[in-house]
Design a protein around this nucleic acid. Structure first.
Lengths: 231, 231
DNA sequence: GCACGTTGTATCGTAGATGATTCAACGAAG
DNA sequence: CTTCGTTGAATCATCTACGATACAACGTGC
């Protein structure tokens, strides 16, 4: 009986070829060791397989590894600039996915009341909420998902003119619980019968004087709100 | 020569067992058809394999499928409430991951100038930016990633008192380009020599009167900013 | 009691990915 | 010219996931 945890696996795709974690590990080790041979033995993998894999990747992504046969030390390999750019891109994707998989979420349920392009309005227990959808229809029962990292907490006094910001969804509530971290706190806010979770830095907690029972205003962007069908 | 695109694959993990897209497809089809037999033939899969897979999943996630052997129609199967909850959770994760994989990003480079717990300050071309890291050290060269869906755009006049909001990073710039969508626009904003990309709804573009050359203020949360090593 | 379609279970075959092994080709350094 | 450790390339073995198949067990309805 373990805890259920979410997991996001990153991959970069081009021309049907998928560059995944395993490939990134190989390229990194080549970068470090300077040869495919050393890299593959260090990783406990077959050198032949590594080479054919590199050619598969290069057929889609272009030159990644400059290989030289013969020469001082017998030869060697080094990554191209394209390859390091690709690795950097993969790293960003990986971190971003891991983050959204692990960040707390708040989930609302409701029915779709209007649709305009990629956006839809949903009637929920906290009022109508706007978010991005991917093929819902009028009247559908949907889940509304808001990541804790995209909720902004404001002092009620600073409640901004809704016409002057691009954050369209907003709502007032009271702090129900503050779950401490090292310097990042998860603040639970009760609003309209639902519990919202927002990630807030320690010094924001101090600046805003957040404490249980405090009244606050929540703001978040429609484009950070995702709608999914309810099964 | 194709376009490189990012991809996020969702999975729920528990006790080492991974519930992925394939499993979700099976469970969904069982829910629809009412039997493992019909589900597996509909999906072109082996019924025997489907049953053993269900048992693997249940060994980690608990009862998912109530199977009845014999009876009217020969028997049948239906999902437990836990299973539908799991499917809903998977759907949210899947949509959230796909979203962060496809949303435009803005990337800054810089060096870490201070670290406090999960947070770190990075000196970049646009000034010092605060974000979440996962094991960086002082002086490290890092990438700063901000998803376009977590950037908030404000009118300069409405620039809020930084002490009244939990959005700590903020910056002024001018609109360089507006990339239209159906109802969601991608606004490119030049600030400090860098180009920021923000997702903004059509009516926010109207309300704020956004157009090329406009001065605006960008705001985003430190907890929506991710730092990764540069390779 | 019999028919029916499902679940339960075991065995076999296949396809794809991967490692293991081997040998040739290479080219700078000494 | 020889040495050296690499790249290049082919072949074989292995492992794993999966489908194919077959048969028993089950229980409701006729």
């Amino acid at each position: 009986m373990g805890e259920t945890s979410g997991l996001g696996r990153a991959a970069l795709v081009r021309d049907g070829v998928e560059l995944g974690e395993r490939d990134v590990g190989l390229l990194r080790e080549i970068d470090v060791t300077g040869s495919v041979a050393r890299a593959s033995t260090n990783l406990g993998r077959s050198r032949a397989r590594a080479l054919t894999r590199i050619e598969e990747l290069e057929s889609a992504f272009g030159d990644l590894v400059e290989r030289q046969r013969g020469g001082s030390g017998g030869g060697g390999s080094r990554l191209t600039d394209d390859a390091t750019r690709l690795l950097n891109r993969y790293e960003r994707l990986q971190v971003a996915l891991s983050a959204t998989a692990h960040v707390p979420e708040t989930v609302l349920e409701g029915t779709v009341s209007s649709i305009a392009g990629e956006l839809a309005d949903v009637e929920t227990s906290v009022g109508t909420v706007r978010g991005l959808h991917d093929g819902v229809s009028l009247g559908d029962l949907v889940q509304v998902r808001i990541g804790a990292d995209s909720l902004t907490v404001l002092e009620p006094a600073a409640d901004p003119d809704p016409d002057s910001t691009s954050a369209r969804n907003h709502l007032s509530g009271i702090v129900a619980e503050i779950e401490p971290g090292e310097t990042v706190f998860t603040v639970h806010i009760e609003a309209g019968g639902a519990i919202f979770r927002a990630l807030v830095t320690e010094d924001s907690v101090d600046r805003l004087g957040l404490a249980e029972g405090c009244g606050v205003v929540l703001t978040w962007k429609a484009t950070a709100t995702r709608l999914t069908h309810e099964v």
